[in-house]
Nucleic acid binder design. Structure first.
Lengths: 347, 347
DNA sequence: GCTACCAATGTAACCGGTTACAGCTGCGCC
DNA sequence: GGCGCAGCTGTAACCGGTTACATTGGTAGC
């Protein structure tokens, strides 16, 4: 690895000048700048990141806090891969890398009831590594943990969790609009008894989807019924159970909006178990557009989220916050209704 | 952030001693060691990682090279999330973090034909960040790129790509054994005409699965037939096309082993399109046990890979290589046949 | 011709640790 | 008593950059 000192010697200038060429090119005369740049290119020099981070008190890395819920080992993020892809490509174009922060499992064992094991440990790691900012992935319903981040003063952007602070913002889908569109779609197909299986209480996207469901009903001129709202937890099994409960109602619904594709799949299975045909006897709409949505039988009509968009939006918000020091407004990504076969065709 | 200097002052010792307490505790007398440890704990001190990396010429970070194939934008790793989970937990217990390396998309645009854009850029980034090692995820069939890593002298472990060198090793599933078991399972169900849809040429796991297929046939006392081997590329569509070609044979197979679940799903669809019932008219086995395997209809019998095992094995191999300086033997993870509904029950 | 100022560059302190080497102390042993 | 050695600790150089401040030379203005 060639150092700035060597470049400086070869060019007959001081290290300070070499450093300036890379950091404040405008303050260096064109002649020397070009000379240094040429030599640096020939020797394949680029500044050592550890030294740079130490000196500037700031590295070219952004931390990713992705702590899986201890109580739900089977939980998977519905589109982590696309998210990472989006993050990576947006960050790379600004020269940043993504550091996947890991706390020891010990911490999680010490705090068994808490989904995000130890926010303070993350903040401390962030400082020790001089990270430029943090991306926080929702890992359950533990809003307290996120407060620690917002108050830490570190630039951070949360995904699907409302976060606000002088240096904190978040990105989420326009969950309410997506849910409302789904419900209007069902209503347009002639359904009048439309139920919903919601996400867990305390989860912001879940709440927004329920709001959207109610709004969609209102927009379609339908009355909301309390007995048509059952609470799930985003997992498949809760969709199955929820659907079974809905079908046991006196006046069972003819259509259901599930707040996640996993639950929609569960609902599909429950319908099949009850001897109902989808979409003829029951219409189902999901939310997320995960990969399996197109594979189940019938293929699931669902509200698609802009998966890579999450990553690029998060990176964009974070980078602007790092550069300007002020938190941009929260980002609300548009959703898109993907019509497949689980609702039938317009009658 | 409190520094070692402050701890030293408070304890009335030199910074060197504080440093030794954290790095070579044995060389410090018990009295001072405990004193320093106590004060450090009270002030929540832990060494600054940038400074430490600079000084030691080695950071507590491992790089992840995950470059998606440019020619196949839709490609997704079958189990990236589990892999990361495994990696993260194994690394964290040794105090390491995972740095997701990103090259600018420019490089990829400059070298359009190459799946792994710019191995040299990755090696250089690794050096600049003083990374302790690299984890390489297979990103296509571009074996040349991996040679650059093996020769760089950096400790690196590849996933599903044979890599060897003084500081290089790899982890993979026991693909041959898994494939052989799948074929024996089909033979045990009475099938005598068993075909396969392979992965792409030049891909090591694909080749191993084909070998296993042939071995399985031999073990079942069945003769291999050239016209029962069609080449796919792991993607669903190639499974569809491959199955269609197999069904067009004079003497079509009654069972097929697909070298990936995606292709198995494609085969399922092709069978349905041809009016065949699975498993009655055709038995299908896949490989990977991705999430959709359990969701398709009929649920797919498949060879499951030890997904988090990949991560923990890779981390283990890498850490031991970092500590000892010598490359451990390649790891071959056992697979497990998961019997579902796509092959029917024993006749 | 002298001063004021600006642009370009060098000097040196600093970021916060690690570690080779040297110094000191106390002990055992001849 | 003196020597050697081991154990502990301090001193200071170093890792490789960044940047506040000083310095230099040149130019414009009066």
């Amino acid at each position: 690895m060639v150092t700035a000192r060597e470049i400086a010697q070869l060019c007959g200038v001081s290290v300070a000048t070499v450093s300036r060429v890379f950091n404040r090119p405008a303050t260096v005369s064109a002649t020397t700048r070009e000379h240094v740049e040429r030599v640096a290119r020939e020797l394949d020099f680029s500044p050592n990141e550890s030294a740079r981070a130490l000196s500037r008190q700031r590295s070219a890395m952004v931390g990713l806090v992705w702590d899986t819920d201890h109580r739900r080992p089977g939980w998977r993020h519905p589109f982590l891969q696309d998210l990472l892809l989006g993050l990576k490509s947006a960050l790379s174009s600004h020269g940043y890398h993504l550091l996947l922060l890991a706390t020891s499992d010990d911490a999680r064992d010490r705090n068994p009831g808490v989904s995000l094991a130890d926010p303070i440990a993350y903040v401390s790691m962030t400082r020790r590594h001089h990270l430029a900012g943090l991306v926080l992935i929702d890992s359950g319903t533990d809003a307290d943990a996120f407060g620690t981040f917002a108050q830490s003063g570190l630039p951070c952007v949360a995904l699907d969790v409302a976060l606000s602070g002088p240096r904190a913002t978040y990105v989420t889908s326009d969950n309410a609009a997506g849910a409302a569109e789904a419900v209007r779609h069902l209503a347009a197909l002639g359904h009048r008894r439309i139920a919903t299986i919601t996400g867990p209480r305390g989860n912001a996207p879940a709440a927004a989807r329920t709001d959207g469901y109610l709004r969609g009903l209102a927009e379609a001129g339908l009355a909301a019924r309390e007995d048509y709202v059952v609470t799930g937890d985003f997992y498949r099994e809760s969709g199955f159970v929820g659907m079974r409960r809905l079908l046991a109602r006196k006046d069972p619904p003819t259509a259901v909006f599930a707040a996640s594709d996993e639950m929609a799949v569960g609902a599909l299975l429950a319908a099949r178990a009850a001897g109902l045909r989808v979409p003829d006897d029951l219409a189902v709409v999901g939310f997320d557009d995960i990969e399996v949505a197109s594979l189940v039988d019938p293929a699931l009509t669902t509200v698609a989220q802009d998966k890579p968009g999450f990553g690029t939006a998060a990176a964009g918000a974070l980078l602007s916050m790092i550069d300007t020091g002020v938190a941009p407004d929260p980002v609300r990504l548009p959703t898109k209704l993907v019509v497949r076969d689980s609702c039938g065709s317009p009658s």
